[in-house]
Amino acid sequence: MVRLDTGRDSAARVDLPPVWPPIRLRTGVWGWIARYPSIALGCFLLSIMLVGAVFAPWLGTVDPTAIATVKRTRPPGAEYWFGSDMLGRDIYSRVLYGTRVSLLVGFSVAVVASVVGLLLGLVSGFVRWADGVIMRFMDGMMSIPPILLAVALMALTRGSVGNVIVAISVAEFPRVARLVRGVVLSVREQPFVDAAIASGTRTPVIIWRHILPNTLGPLIVQATYICASAMITEAILSFIGAGTPPTIPSWGNIMAEGRALWQVKPFVVFFPAIFLSITVLAVNLLGDGLRDALDPRGQKDR
């Protein structure tokens, strides 16, 4: 995703102006939607997916792993809404249950990478001797293209949702650490922090009162993009056979299994692809909206 504020030793720090500038101010729910259309649309799509994931067992699904080889590769119809796959499993059920995996991986990676990155970033920003070591290590990790790092990590271990989350988190957290460290360093320069330090305020309090509130905005935005990127990475990992185990229906797995039949039975790949694209789109929209809403500079460009 747009990882520009990685704090690399570059002269450029780019802030993106709003993609969806508001048209007119209104009040109430509709006013909120009009002011943040991208957040609204993102939340709307995401909550549909969330409902699908949580209530999957009650939404007309069957056991997503039940095999019925006699009824394999049926096209979408009354019996199989999205068709059946090579083992006669119901694709609608598999896709709906797959939503769970995708959302779980996306959210977990966002949380894990943010927390680990936040902690390391704070340590790096406050403990001078650790800064050099941590940041050189982060530089090294960031120099390995994230997908390659995740794939290499998955080669280490057996495929499970937990391992996928760990692998993608490891590939993502250095960027968060960089971001947080950057915020810490810039906030530390502020006069009010100087004053607080001078007056003997303890470090944890400074972090809690001054650093965290300033970190939160960029961190949430970054976490959203990590979430989107993690969902795509999970699909890619499963697609090339290094992701979630096949006993768990995930979108990447369904697509990997269906890709050989792409020319004759496109529906096997089509449905998970649509779901994945829409979900990632929703998260990206949310991220864009949040960035515009949380970035004070966004106001200036209008």
């Binding site: 792993t65 095999i67 080889t69 090579m86 083992l87 495929g159 056979g241 096949p246 006993t247 050989a260």
Partner: peptide, 14 residues
Amino acid sequence: QDQPITKAQGDVTA
């Protein structure tokens, strides 16, 4: 999982 023959059989056995 990287051999179609073992993969398909494994799913059925499970």
